[in-house]
Amino acid sequence: MRCFPSIALPLALALLAGPTEDEPSAVQDPRPISAPGIENLFRLGPNLLSGGQPEGDEAFRALADLGVRTIITVDGAAPDTEAARRYGMRYVHLPIGYDGVPREQAVALVKAVRSLPGPFYVHCHHGKHRGPSAAAVCAIATQGWDKDQARRWLEEAGTSPDYAGLFASVAAFEPPTVAELAAVPESALPERAEVPDLVAAMVDVDQRWERLKAVSAAGFRTPPDHPDLDPPHEALMLAEHYRELARLDEAKDRGAAFLRLLARAERDALALRDALRDPAALATAPAAFDRAGRDCKACHSRFRDQSPN
């Protein structure tokens, strides 16, 4: 892992104290911008952007062209640190869940934008839920946003009201004190964080589900722009992910209701596989796909989307 030199104490204290005269601090409304390989890209201020995961060299080049020097991801997936380095940027990996931004991570987010080179790009997978909430925390602490502007930003970014914990944590957020920020060690801003096995497994499920969405959009056949995708195999792999999830101690600790949902999701993914591999049954694929989607929504609503507080 690449090491980045510590900032001298006087400069660090100045950064912790707030914007300098040379750093624009006026409140700015978010505005959408476009770049190849990046979904839902917005500029939130002179020093802050938000959006989806950069896909491919073009996306990282575009971020560098926009002046970005530090990329902050709150996604569970491991970031492409090598691609960032190729374009003169570094990553900070601070994963959060859909149930809100924990205080510890919120303080680390603010420490990152106070102590590392900007401008900053904050992202999750699609740039709609976790990323915008993390960016809102940064904007409240460093750009003078009030809670109403932060809430409007989440709505503009497309953050689903189903994720009540994300809205609640932004509404309750108060900027950290200088003492809180000073207590955050450099090791708390890793380029690539270790994530729990359950989180890593759910990342795999999400990625497989994205492939099945592409299959659905192609009429439940191999998408022309993804000839590598075999629809029945994708559904089978989704079922396997659910089966492996159920074997994890973290999944068992969530209780019988969670395990029942996983078992049902596995059965419905296998039914989708059967519909996709039999031409005579292909007409049943949309209903099977919808059932599989409802399984995800039911699990998210009960176990992922609400604030633990």
Rank of each mutant, 00 (worst) to 15 (best):
Q105S: 11
R192A: 15
S34K: 12
L66R: 10
V113M: 01
A135S: 07
L13T: 11
W209T: 15
Y242F: 15
L41S: 04
V195C: 05
G118Q: 05
G51A: 08
F4D: 12
F289H: 13
R304I: 02
P224F: 13
I7P: 00
F173M: 03
R130Y: 04
G76E: 06
D80N: 13
L212Q: 02
A112G: 03
L282A: 14
Y91R: 06
L44A: 02
E39N: 12
I7K: 08
Y91K: 04
P185A: 01
I38D: 00
L272N: 07
I72G: 01
A251N: 03
Q149T: 12
H123Y: 01
E21P: 14
P30I: 05
L41R: 01
A164N: 12
F60I: 00
P231G: 02
P232Y: 08
S50V: 10
G118K: 07
A193E: 08
R264M: 11
E250M: 12
N309M: 11
G127Q: 00
D295H: 08
P232L: 09
Y163F: 13
K213S: 07
A141D: 02
F303Y: 13
P19Q: 07
P132W: 07
G158T: 01
T81F: 08
I140A: 02
Y91S: 10
A269R: 05
E244I: 14
A183T: 07
G219I: 08
P79V: 07
E104T: 14
R291K: 10
R208V: 11
A139D: 05
G56A: 03
P119M: 08
V137M: 03
A62K: 01
A12L: 15
T159P: 04
A106F: 01
V199I: 10
G45A: 15
R243S: 15
A235C: 03
D225F: 12
L49Q: 04
E266N: 13
A84Y: 03
D57S: 10
V107N: 00
V178E: 09
L116G: 13
E155Q: 15
H123S: 01
S187V: 10
T284I: 10
E250H: 07
P175V: 01
L154G: 06
T284L: 15
L166W: 08
H126D: 06
N40I: 04
K213A: 08
S307Y: 06
